[in-house]
Design a protein around this nucleic acid. Structure first.
Lengths: 249, 249
DNA sequence: AAACTTAGTGTAAAATATACACTTTGAGAA
DNA sequence: TTCTCAAAGTGTATATTTTACACTAAGTTT
């Protein structure tokens, strides 16, 4: 998908913001962009924010979210799911945010409602290429995220809650891992995200019993210990009906 | 809360729509309004839609949803929860919808993104008073809802999914019942909404074990059979941590 | 008083969840 | 080559939860 910029056709009242989660094998990461000013104006603003932007008048909201991620990071074709709408009246009123808006937005004082999206990616699939108004795009440790710009901490909070709920009820953990992975990575992922210390044997038994994992003939390489067998995720029909029956933890 | 109309200050690009569920003892109901034209223009439009309206520029989205329900139905101070944002490009493009918009909206062709909210009420607490642009406000049997205006069937679908999920994991069923109720009403409510036929004895045991129900000394009156004991809902601290542990079905 | 209708109640068997620890295997160091 | 280290891989017994299932009690109406 190539983004078609029609800057004369911006909807100044609605934006999208994306929470992209990744997992590096031991920590949960969030994709953040360091806000910079177009044209390299001489303003020091290293505030971290979620990747996001105003939508265009004739653009579907979901498409807008995709476009933002593509433009800003080179990440394309991602499964995005809506978190919700965030429309607090004061969501753009921090001093630093106002300075940034004044310099970047055509109508800086416009009241903007933003729609949050979230996505799960295998962190190694993506070499991030900053572009647009992002000086840097970084994977930030979820637990080390400080104060973000705008109301983005609120959006992030909503996203982590959604992620934890999904992890319980849907086969989504796999999306954070490479195509083939040792079971222990999945186990660590669950413990990390859920902030828990699950019983290892019980976890492995349960996760195998779901039928979403298939063993491969491949093993870990380059590890200084017995290499673990690699497993792969099996796409099965998973409907919302199953939703309540399945437990993945 | 008194609604303050500042019609010169409307945000023509964002609206709210509310899905209000009620339960009459045997069926799940949805609050719908029959669209009419202001000033009684001579147009025949009895399309049913969810109660909703454009928001004001300086109005919080949630407040807007409250205002709509108050203005349109007299229902005040309701617990509303966001469903999500609906922004399909074609969501206002049905012929009938366009006619209505042309006659009623200041900028009828504006692209509008709507935020859906949902609420649960005890149907008997509310004598509905139609007002504003609603000719009739009615409780419609959920299973008999036909084609609604705009994209309101989509919003309703999202709402029922949310309701079913909540019913499993949170103590919300009580909100659809009067203050005191016999256990069988709760049982029927679950079966109706979940489209299931739960084992009655097991259901009663489980629901009592949650600790959210307290028996009263009152009994049903005017029933042509043994009157059942009435129970009442006990507010307990219920956090999202419990969320996963609790089962209400 | 008989018939009807819903209320109210217990138990046994099956399935699931939990707690728990030792052996195996390959890599790397001695 | 063997020793050590680190994580892989694996089973069982107990507790808890879920499920399936049917009769008696009580008030109303006829």
């Amino acid at each position: 998908m190539e983004a078609t910029k029609k800057t004369n056709n911006i909807n100044p009242t609605v934006s999208v913001d994306c929470v992209v989660f990744g997992f590096d094998g031991s920590d949960l990461k969030v994709l953040l962009v360091q806000r910079d000013l177009r044209d390299n104006l001489d303003i020091d603003d290293d505030t971290l924010v979620l990747p996001g932007d105003l939508i265009f008048e004739d653009e579907d909201i979901l498409d807008a979210a995709s476009r933002v991620l593509l433009d800003l990071t080179g990440i394309d074709n991602l499964f995005l799911e809506q978190i919700g709408a965030f429309g607090n009246l004061d969501r753009l009123s921090k001093d630093k945010d106002k300075i940034w808006l004044d310099l970047v937005r055509p109508t800086p004082d416009s009241r903007v409602i933003t729609i949050g999206y979230f996505a799960l990616v295998n962190i190694k699939n993506y070499t991030i290429k900053p572009a647009g108004f992002a000086k840097h795009v970084i994977w930030k440790d979820f637990n080390e995220v400080g104060e973000l710009g705008f109301d983005h901490n609120d959006i992030l909070s909503a996203a982590i809650i959604k992620l934890r709920n999904k992890l319980y009820h849907e086969p989504v953990g796999f999306k954070l891992l490479p195509n083939q992975f040792p079971l222990n990575h999945l186990y660590t992922l669950y413990n990390t995200i859920l902030n828990s210390k699950l019983d290892r044997r019980n976890f492995l038994r349960r996760i195998l019993k779901t039928g979403f994992l298939k063993e491969t003939d491949n093993f870990q390489e380059g590890v200084p210990h017995k290499p673990a067998r690699l497993y792969t995720f099996v796409e099965k029909k998973f409907t919302n009906d199953n939703n309540q029956k399945f437990k993945f933890y």
